[in-house]
């Protein structure tokens, strides 16, 4: 469904990807993992057309997305840091995004789940970081898109909201959607994710299921397995 073909991308002198190839299927939850500056966010942003690769092609539904914009109606995106126009009210922002996408949406339930009812008439500049993240999630999840891209969805969330978030993600997965996820919270990965793509300096150093990772690195949980992976100096050996 999504194919990165020979992607190269550098920012000035810093090369992030050099001929990266990656295929992602129709459905399920795929975690993109890796240390800071390993290219997770860049990869996601390339999928969304926010970062434009120097070379290579990105295919969605058998079509290149590089000069296209209409495919984005199929993708819901949760950015990592959400700063919204400070003078807009929450409900205005919601209607702005609805207005732009022109798609059916169900924000009411999300507003209930995240208890945003009282904040709807507040200006975004007056909200706390956690509330802003809830608004961010609402904007992302209120559409029924086949692909959902979540960049650090747990940022700034309280434990209750985090539980709600997990439920929401599982529910979307059950609808047969494809969910791309980056996070530092390993429990989230462990609970939800079926496939993990581990990036290191722009290379895919691991691609597979939880169990495969754990067996490969003789660990009881993913966190340890990943630690082992990182300690292993010879990354080339484990490249798949």
């Amino acid at each position: 469904m999504i194919k990165f073909e020979n992607i190269s991308k550098s920012f000035g002198k810093l090369t992030v990807f050099d001929k990266l190839n990656l295929e992602i299927g129709e459905s399920g939850i795929v975690s993109i993992l890796g240390p800071n500056a390993s290219g997770k966010t860049t990869l996601i942003k390339m999928l969304l057309g926010m970062v434009i690769p120097n070379n290579g092609n990105i295919i969605y539904q058998n079509k290149s997305i590089l000069k296209d914009w209409n495919y984005r109606k199929d993708i819901s995106y949760l950015p990592q840091i959400a700063h919204f126009p400070e003078n807009l009210r929450v409900k205005e922002l919601i209607s702005l995004v609805k207005n732009i996408r022109q798609q059916d949406s169900d924000e009411k339930e999300l507003i209930d789940i995240f208890k945003l009812g009282n904040s709807l008439d507040k200006k975004l500049g007056h909200l706390s970081g956690g509330t802003v993240q809830k608004v961010n999630l609402t904007l992302c999840l209120m559409f029924d898109s086949p692909v959902i891209v979540l960049d650090e969805p747990s940022n700034g969330l309280d434990p209750i909201a985090l539980v709600n978030l997990k439920e929401l993600i599982s529910r979307e997965k059950e609808k047969g959607k494809l969910i791309l996820l980056t996070t530092h919270i390993m429990s989230l990965v462990e609970e939800l994710s079926e496939r993990m793509v581990f990036l290191l300096e722009g290379n895919v150093v691991f691609d597979g299921s939880n169990e495969k990772l754990k067996t490969m690195y003789q660990a009881t949980n993913i966190e340890k397995a990943l630690a082992n992976l990182l300690e292993n100096g010879n990354v080339e050996n484990i490249k798949i």
């Binding site: 926010m50 914009w69 984005r72 993708i75 950015p79 700063h83 919204f84 995004v97 732009i100 996408r101």
Partner: peptide
């Protein structure tokens, strides 16, 4: 500079740059 993040939000929407 103040609307950079807003632009990012909008960029992910199905709109022409």
């Amino acid at each position: 500079y103040n609307s950079k993040e807003f632009i990012q939000l909008i960029l992910a929407q199905p709109l022409k740059r």
